[in-house]
């Protein structure tokens, strides 16, 4: 049987399509949602502390060293999933975690942390979601890496697992520390 060249055309078109799909797919690791906030300073805010409502937290309270800022809520099932890993990070790794309690009820949030242990140095009450809007948060959980000057360097959408910590967040943290 002879192979007519014209019958290869569909295959050729398909391979071209696959090439583009593959390239496009590589571009779009969905966890790196394009954030206009990357390499911008952390937004200014004045919000209550979760455990000490008389205390007003400001942006300056986050600045000083490389740190993680984690957006969480009691209504968010993925926050439950990432919680053990956040606890481990707060104990075993030398990095500070700050929490933003997003669109939540304060009493519930305090109980939630009491039941599960608190990995955060402190949590900020963002009950109206203002800070979350400034940060461009899609939903909880989201985790931001800020450098020692308070500039946002990385953003991760979804639960932080050990794999995510090892492969995505830790390298960035180490890079930021070494370039200081």
């Amino acid at each position: 049987m002879t192979l007519k060249k014209s019958f290869l055309i569909p295959l050729g078109i398909f391979l071209l399509l696959v090439l583009f799909l593959g390239l496009g797919f590589q571009l779009k690791d969905p966890h790196y949602l394009p954030s206009v906030m990357i390499n911008k300073p952390f937004p200014e805010f004045e919000l209550k502390d979760l455990h000490q409502p008389e205390k007003i937290r400001k942006k300056e309270d986050l600045i000083g060293e490389v740190a993680l800022v984690n957006v969480w809520a009691t209504w968010c099932p993925n926050c439950v999933i990432e919680h053990p890993e956040l606890l481990r990070i707060s104990k075993d790794e030398s990095i500070t975690l700050f929490g933003i309690n997003y669109n939540d009820e304060t009493v519930k949030a305090i109980n939630w942390l009491a039941r599960r242990e608190d990995p955060y140095r402190f949590s900020i009450v963002d009950d109206e979601g203002k800070l979350a809007i400034d940060l461009g948060v899609y939903g909880a959980p989201e985790t931001f890496v800020i450098d020692s000057l308070g500039v946002i360097r990385f953003r991760y959408v979804g639960p932080v697992t050990n794999e995510v910590w090892q492969q995505e967040i830790l390298p960035i943290v180490e890079h930021l520390r070494s370039s200081q």
Binding site: M1, T2, L3, K4, F7, P10, L11, F14
Partner: peptide, 9 residues
């Protein structure tokens, strides 16, 4: 499509 190219001609 490979099968097609081989057989359909």
């Amino acid at each position: 499509l490979v099968i097609y190219a081989l057989k359909a001609s």
